[in-house]
Every structure is written in C-alpha cells, then in structure tokens.
Design a protein around this nucleic acid. Structure first.
Length: 945
RNA sequence: GGGCGGUUAGCUCAGUUGGGAGAGCAACUGGUUUACACCCAGUAGGUCACAGGUUCGAGCCCUGUACCGCCCACCA
C-alpha cells in the first residue's frame, strides 16, 4: 500500500471534494479487495454476517435503500474494524411481477410483439437480456453510497444455485405435506391475471353505497316481520336485543344488503343467524333470486350478525371469502360468474345455467350482462332491480375495498386451483424462537407485531400465473395425478412407474411467489443445499436490518424456512439470525410513505451529488432513532456535510502546524494537562460510541462522535494548542503534535463506519499507513484520567465567562483588557500561570495578573471561590456592568430560593437519596458564595455609576 | 373493530433505569487570531398536547381526553 498511499506531497485542499475523492477511495477499496469475506479478519475473532435485503433487480436506489444500507454498512465496518470475520452478502431479487411488468412495458414501447406472441421461452430469454443490460443498476449506486458488501459473492434469486435451493425446499415441503394444491378462493388480480397472497392485498377506504334488495320468498311463503315505532310513529327495523317488538307486518320477501350488486347473479343462498327469532321459521325455505329466478335456500349459520343490517345476508360463495365458508358449511352451490379479467360470464356457463329455465327474460338478462365489465354490470343490475321495484333502499357507505398492491385495481375473490404452504405449521417454531429469545427484535415492540401475525397466519398462496420466476416443479399425469420432482426426467419416470406404462405428462405452468425464494436467502446465498464452507462459517447470520414493512413478507418467512431446513449436528434448528433490527421508513415531509406512484420520492443520488455520500450517510445515521419516523430535510444533509468539512480542516490545521503521526507516542505518557484531557475525552467517546453502535443506537453514536470532534477537539483542544505550537517549549510542542495526530487517527477510526470515504482519505494522507482504515483496529479506551479534566474544565469555564461578560457589555473584540485575579489558592495560581497564554489568546485579555486586592471599577466573575476582574475604566460605562450584575443576582436569587424551598422540605430530605440531597446542598452553597461576591461587586459599582 | 406510535424552542427532531429541558437549522448581536464564512464568539426562544393520579420530586410512571399517523381485520 505504501507506494500508492504514502503521504502525498500536495497540501490538503480547502474543502473535501466528494465528487472526485469518493470514487477514488471506492477504487482503492476495490483494488485491495477490501470487503471480501473475511478481509481484515484477526485471529481469534468470530464471524459476523449480514445478508442484504435483496433489492429488486428492477430497482434503483431510493432513500429507503440508502437508509437501510447505511445502517448495515455502519455495523459491518464497525465489526470489520474489530477484527471479526465479516461477510456482508449482497444480492438481488428477481421480483416476479415487477420485472415482468417492466419488460412487457418495454416491448410495448418498442412496438414489439407482446409476451404471448413471443411465447414463454422467448419472453424469459428477453427478461434475462434485459437483466444483463439494465438490471442491477442499484449495485453501482450502493457502491457510491460506500456499502462494503463482498461484491464478488453477489447472488440472484434466479441463479442456478438459488434455484436449486428453491427446488429442494419445494419438493421436501411437498413430500412432508406442508405444500399442497387446493381449490379455494384466492385474491385474484384481474389486471395482472394472477393470484396474489393476502399480503399483496391493500385495503383501501372507498366511498360506495350499500344497496338493500328485496328477495321474494318462494310462492306461498311469508312470515311475520317485527318492527318498532319511532317518535313519529314510523316503522323501524327491530333487532333481537331490543326486547318486545312493537308490531308485525306480513312479508313475502327478505331484505338483504350488498355493496356489490353484480355478485347477486352468483347468489346461491341467504343466510340468517340460527337464533334470530325473525327468521327461524324461514330456515329451510327458499327465496327466488330476482332477475335470474333461481330458487335458493335460506340457511342458518352463525356468520350473520342479527344486530347488523337486516340480519339476513345474501350468499355468493364463489365471490366472497365469508360466503365461501358459509357455503361450505351449508352445502351451497358455488357459481362463478366472472372471467379472469373481471367481466361477467353467464353465457354458456353451465354452473350459472344449471337449474334455470331458458325463459325470454333469462335470455335478455344474459344478453344485457354477459361480457360486461364488473363495474358496468353493477349499474345494469341496479337498474334492473330498481325497475322491478326490488331496490328497497340506497345508503351511502364507506368501506375497505381490497386492491392489488402492484396493479392498483380491486381484486376479486376467485375460485381457482393454487399451491399453498401450510404456514400455520411452519410458524410454530418461528414463534417459539422469538418467544424464547433466540431471535430478538430491536426495538422490542415489533415482536408483538410479529406474534400477532404469526399466530393468526393463513395458508400462504405461493403460485403465480406469471412466467418470470421459479416454475413449480410439478407435472400432471393424464388423470391429473401430481408428480413433484426435481426434473422432468424424474417426473416422467415417476409417472411411468405410477401408471405402469409410458404416459404424457405436462408441467404446471405457474411460478412461485418471489418471496418463496427470498425466504431462503440467509442460507441459499451461502450455497445450501450444498454443504459449503461458507455455510459452516457464516450461518447463523447475525443481524438482519430491515424496514418494518417487510416483517411479514420476508422476516417471518425467513424464520419459518430457516428453522425448518437449517439444523446443527444434533438436529436442533438454527434461526437465520439472532437479531432483527427494525428501522422506520423514510417518509416525505407530510409523514406519508414515499412511493413512486405518489411522486414524493427524494432521490438519494441527487443528495450524494450535492453533498457527498458521507454527508448523506451521516445524516441518515443521525435519523436512525429506534422507533421513530424518519423525515428527510436537505438542510440537515448540508449540516453534516459541514461537519465533514470541519474535520477536514482540522486535519489541514494539523498538517500546517506540523502535527505528524508518530508511532512512538504513548498516550499513557502524555505529560501536558491539555493532552491528558483530550485523551480522556477521547476515551469517553470511544466507550460511548462503541456501546451505542453495539446497542444499535446509531443516532446516539453519531452525535457523540459529532460532539467530540467539533466541540471538544476543534473548539477547545486545537484552540488551546495554538499557543503551544507557537510557543518556545519544544518538548511541549512535540508531545502535543504527536498527541493531536494520535487523537486524529482515532477520530478517523471512530467516524469511519459513518463517513468512510473522507476518513479513509485522511487516514491515507496523514501518514504512511500499513493498512487501509477499513481494516484498522477499532480503538479501545484508556484508563480514565479525571485530574486533567478539572483543570481544563476550569479553563473552559473561565474563558467562556470572560467572553460572555465582554459580549454582554458590548466590548469590542479588538479591545484588549486586563484580567486580575484575587483569592487564588496554590492550585489556581499554578493553573493561571500554566494557561495564561491560552486565556489571553482566547478571551482577548492582557495582561493576566494575580493580585492581593480587587481593582476598582471592574466587571467581576466568580468561579468557585476565586474572583476574576476585568477593569472597565476607560472602556465602558459602569452602568452596563451594573445591569449585568443585577441580572446575574436575580438569576442567583431565584436559584437559591428554589433550593432553599426544596431543602427546607423535610420530606425531600427524608426521602430523596442522600446523594441527591448532598448535591443540592453543594449547589446551594456554591450559589450563595457566588451571590455574596456578586453582591459586593454590585454595591461597589452602584457607587460609581 | 383491534393493535401500535406520535404530540418537547419558529422548523426538523433528541431526551435508556423519575432528581434543574437539549441538538441542528432558522433568528438576533458581533467578528480580532496558525485550519475552517460549509467558520468563530455571544444572545434570545419551551405551562414538554390537555385533565387527573402516584411520588419529597414527573417530559419520563399510571388513568382518561383530544388531535395526527401507521399496521391488521370477512361486517353483508
């Protein structure tokens, strides 16, 4: 490294040029293969593994990725510097629907044949081509961000290896009976023409109507319908809970309500609650479904709520999840009246026509409705019902309508054959693992969300009617017999064996839900099902860092898959990770989720262009509050860019003043208080930053570093070194130069996880380093040295007071004035002598003198028992000082009276811990002695002004 | 309908075992020096949403209310 990165001749530029330096540093890391698995590993240190949440192959870096990956990188770089055997496993997700949509759109834009014309194989080939050209853009963007993944290990969910894992998992779950095929209602997306899982359904509040229909009872049947009267004597519907009804009327119809009138074409029953007194006599009778004239039964089922609506509910088992269940319990027919794309299908539909007489009215109905879009059909049905006088009432009604999260159209419950995973079974060990603390969430409250979902988990529909994805390894024999095997050849021989002769088999055309392969990510990327060395070394992974929006989609499913397939030698299941760090989503300024469709996306790449990756990362780290929302304000990015510049300039100052890294410097041997002080502050910061990163409090780690660098190191340490650097004491200068270099080097290390580019650059430029900063040893704290702190804290307080007095009294900065000290003991005297230069320089006082008696006409400062005077004669009107003292005295009075009251409270003295009481007493004494001195000063000045 | 989170300075937000409320930005005053105007020094600004309760003591714990946001859910 030394030939390339030895100290460079040219001095540092005035600011850090992120545009040119960041890419150069990225290249330096690249060439050194700095992030390969195990790079920088030190003997005896364990492994540390993170798998990246695989971005979609179609994706480009959005602010959420930037946030998520910044946090991962902070942790990964931190662990790497601790000498751990680190793997940050990168990779991408094939994102079935999203990718297929992108390429289909591209075909359309290019006016090329659509996918159906192209055919399945050609289309898939086309997607691979697209991936080669435009996929994975996001990885370059992640590199710009500084993500230190082992890029050589990049995986893709459609890779051969990962596909092998998918096959293995599917087949063994099938053979265990945990994957099965079933005909039931699914969430059907009529636009994308595929089934989707419950999680891909978004409930959207929609304003609509609730229409009340009269369904005539079959001829000869009627019943007594009770009612109550309102104050005006109007008949109101009666509910079982209301006690005795006021009266009855004879009805030959039932009223049902619906938000989806068009589904009535598929009604096959009316359900009432078995205990509902209104309808008990009707159970077992029939109604005649209007328009269609189908005779359908009235059944008793616990599902209808007698308190809601009329208590009678129309049943469409083929188009509603509840009705489906009721239908199963009561043997109701299932009549599918829709096509896959959501149009009415009642012509030549045997299910629909069964049992119907072919009347002219029916023919007319069919001709009016068949082929109509479901929403148009709704209006037509409504008109028909109204015409017949069967529309009893129309109410405004706001309700949740399920929409496909990709297509944005209302989904249809649709009766199809699909593949399911028995998630309930797989969830059991996944729940236990978290309950028993083998995997824990940070922050902990997400565990409730996890449990709540896992404990109510539904079968997971994993088949998709798409082309892009892992095709389901199932083949069908002539009679529909299923053969699930690794290859067509094996399926063929299984089929041949089954039938005892050679038969033709057909592969299931469907592909698997993308999340099926993502669920395997923590072990499939390490080579499973092969027993690779990486699998042994890096599984179990350590921390999963992810947004809460994919806890269900991804985290839960990784837990299920990991615990089912990964076992140690004794067969004990191994969780995929021991910790799940859940961060907030980056939201727009209104707190809304950012999404492309809303157009409220902040582009991290623009921020990187403008401020540099380090600045963006530092900002994001500072926003990573556990449990909090993240709203991005560009002004803050600028602020943290400024912080980088500050550090840059501190280094520049060091360079100018001969600060040079010296490996002989031993911090324990530092002699000067100022050096011992900064080393103690450094140690405190090291401890704090280390602890905060380890507890995932990234914002607190970042702000601790910020304060140390800016407030302690730059504002005070470097300022206090200036007189030493320009002074005569060569030993002091040499020690300080070495010490400053030492502290700077540790600062680079401490900041490296947060701002890797600039720190690496500075590290390389400030000394002839043996290694890259990203492999340097994370610093450890020294034994604490509190002695120095007293002295420097006194100095800081004194300088601050002098500055404050000067400013308040309007003394020009250019005005140099004397400082006279009285009442100094030996210690203070020594300190004054030691720091006279610094005091003079930083607070513009000259000379600094210790005297026996106080000068006349001075501003007065009290620190501890010592008085400090600034003679004002000829400089400023005493009135100003009088006002200032009065203000001070007022403040002291209020403090003193507050403490008096508190300490006068017997119960406080009796109940509060001794420590607290003692502290308060000490404070009070301090304020009192300060007040006495101030009062003296005030009296004196009053006489003069 | 169930669950979770939020309400602290003009703005964006910190505040981990209860013991005098902080940061950044913005504002105001003023800038001499061996780095930095992306800077330095100083100043001002808060009934910690509201109402009760526990406690010697509450931004923090308990109860309730209001408003905002999110997640889950099959009410026709």
């Amino acid at each position: 490294m030394s030939e390339k990165n030895s100290q460079q001749e040219s001095p540092l530029a005035k600011t850090f040029d992120a545009q040119t330096i960041e890419p150069a540093i990225a290249e330096l890391w690249d060439n050194a293969n700095a992030f390969a698995a195990g790079a920088g590993h030190r003997e005896g240190e364990e492994s540390f593994t993170i798998v990246i949440p695989p971005p979609n192959v179609t994706g480009s870096l959005h602010i959420g990725h930037a946030f998520n990956n910044t946090l991962q990188d902070i942790l990964v770089r931190f662990k790497r510097m601790q000498g751990k055997d680190v793997l940050w496993q990168p990779g991408m997700d094939h994102a079935g629907i999203a990718t297929q949509m992108v390429v289909e759109r591209q075909l359309m834009e290019n006016q090329e044949p659509n996918r159906h014309a192209l055919g399945r194989d050609n289309f898939i080939e086309r997607i691979w081509q697209w991936k080669k050209q435009s996929g994975g853009l996001i990885f370059n963007q992640l590199r710009r961000l500084g993500a230190s993944c082992d890029w050589s290990r990049e995986r893709f969910t459609m890779d051969e290896g990962l596909s092998e894992a998918v096959l293995e998992v599917f087949i063994s779950l099938y053979k265990e009976g945990l994957i099965y095929k079933d005909k039931r209602l699914v969430n059907w997306d009529p636009k994308l023409l595929t089934a989707i899982s419950d999680l891909e359904v978004e409930q959207i509040e929609t304003k609509g109507n609730l229409w009340h229909f009269k369904y005539p009872l079959e001829p000869g049947v009627s019943y007594r319908h009770p009612y109550i009267l309102d104050n005006e004597g109007n008949k109101l519907s009666w509910r079982p809970s209301q006690g005795d009804p006021a009266g009855y009327e004879i009805r030959d119809y039932l009223t049902v309500a619906t938000t989806r009138p068009e589904t009535m074409l598929g009604d096959t029953g009316v359900a009432v609650h078995p205990d509902d007194p209104r309808y008990q006599d009707l159970v077992g009778k029939h109604v005649v479904l209007p328009l269609v004239e189908r005779r359908i039964p009235i059944v008793a089922d616990p599902y209808p709520d007698p308190e809601a609506g009329t208590g009678a509910v129309k049943m469409t088992p083929a188009h509603d999840f509840n009705d489906f269940d009721v239908g199963n319990r009561n043997n109701l027919r299932r009549i599918n009246i829709l096509t896959v794309d959501g149009n009415i299908h009642i012509k030549e539909n045997d299910d629909f026509l069964e049992g119907l007489e072919s009347t002219p009215e029916l023919v007319d109905l069919i001709s009016q409705l068949h082929g109509q879009d479901r929403f148009k059909a709704r209006n037509i049905v409504l008109k028909m019902m109204e015409t017949k006088g069967l529309l009893a009432k129309t109410e405004n009604h706001t309700h949740m309508v399920p929409h496909g999260d990709r297509s944005g159209v209302p989904i249809e419950p649709f009766l199809t054959d699909q593949w399911y995973v028995n998630a309930e079974e797989l969830a059991k060990p996944a729940i236990a693992a978290v309950r028993e603390g083998r995997t824990s969430f940070v922050p902990k409250n997400w565990e409730n969300t996890y449990f709540n979902w896992m404990e109510n988990i539904q079968p997971w529909c994993i088949s998709r009617q798409l082309w892009w994805g892992h095709q389901i390894p199932a083949w069908y024999g002539p009679d529909g017999q299923i053969f699930v095997e690794k290859s067509e050849r094996e399926a063929q021989s299984a089929a041949d064996a089954h039938y005892g002769k050679s038969v033709e088999i057909n592969r299931d055309p469907d592909v698997l839900d993308t999340w099926f392969s993502s669920a395997l990510w923590p072990f499939s990327t390490l080579g499973w099902p092969e027993k690779t060395p990486e699998l042994a070394r890096y599984y179990q992974t350590d921390v999963l860092i992810t947004g809460f929006d994919i806890i269900f989609f991804w985290v839960a499913r990784m837990m299920m898959a990991g615990l089912h397939f990964m076992k140690d030698e004794e067969g004990t299941p191994i969780e995929p990770f021991h910790t799940v760090y859940v961060h907030a989503l980056v939201r727009d300024k209104n707190g809304a989720k950012m999404s492309k469709s809303k157009g409220n996306v902040v582009d991290p790449l623009e921020l990187i262009d403008q401020y540099g990756a380090d600045a963006l990362r530092y900002t994001l780290a500072n926003m990573a509050v556990q449990g909090g929302d993240v709203k991005l304000d560009p002004a803050r990015v600028a602020g943290f860019r400024n912080f980088g510049t500050k550090l840059w300039n501190a280094t520049r100052f060091a360079e100018i003043t001969g600060v040079k890294y010296n490996s002989d410097f031993k911090p324990q041997d530092a002699r000067l208080t100022i050096n011992r002080w900064i080393l103690a502050e450094l140690s405190k910061s090291i401890e704090e930053i280390t602890a905060k990163i380890e507890s995932y409090r990234f914002n607190e780690a970042a702000s601790a570093a910020y304060k140390f660098v800016w407030n302690s190191f730059c504002d005070w340490y470097l300022e206090l070194l200036k007189p030493i650097f320009s002074g005569e004491d060569e030993d002091a200068r040499a020690e300080s130069q070495a010490c400053a270099a030492y502290v700077l080097a540790d600062i680079y290390k401490l900041l490296h996880p947060f701002m890797p580019f600039m720190t690496e650059e500075l590290w390389q430029r400030t000394a002839d380093r043996e290694q890259l900063l990203c492999h340097a040893h994370w610093p450890t704290a020294l034994d604490s040295d509190t002695e120095a702190a007293d002295e420097i804290n006194w100095l800081i307080e004194l300088i601050g007071e002098i500055r404050s007095v000067r400013a308040e009294m309007g003394i020009k900065p250019s005005q140099v004035m004397a400082l006279i000290i009285t009442g100094a003991d030996d210690k203070i005297t020594k300190w004054i002598q030691m720091h006279a230069n610094a005091i003079a320089r930083l607070s513009r006082v000259e000379p600094v003198e210790i005297k026996e008696s106080s000068p006349k006409g001075s501003a007065q400062i009290v620190i501890g028992k010592v008085n400090y005077f600034l003679p004002l004669e000829g400089i400023v009107d005493f009135v100003e000082e009088r006002k200032r003292l009065e203000k001070e005295l007022k403040k002291l009075d209020s403090e003193i009276s507050r403490l008096d009251k508190k300490l006068g409270n017997e119960r406080f003295v009796a109940n509060a811990p001794e420590r607290v009481v003692a502290e308060e007493r000490q404070k009070l004494a301090g304020y009192q002695s300060q007040k006495e001195k101030m009062a003296v000063a005030h009296n004196r000045i009053k006489d003069m002004s």
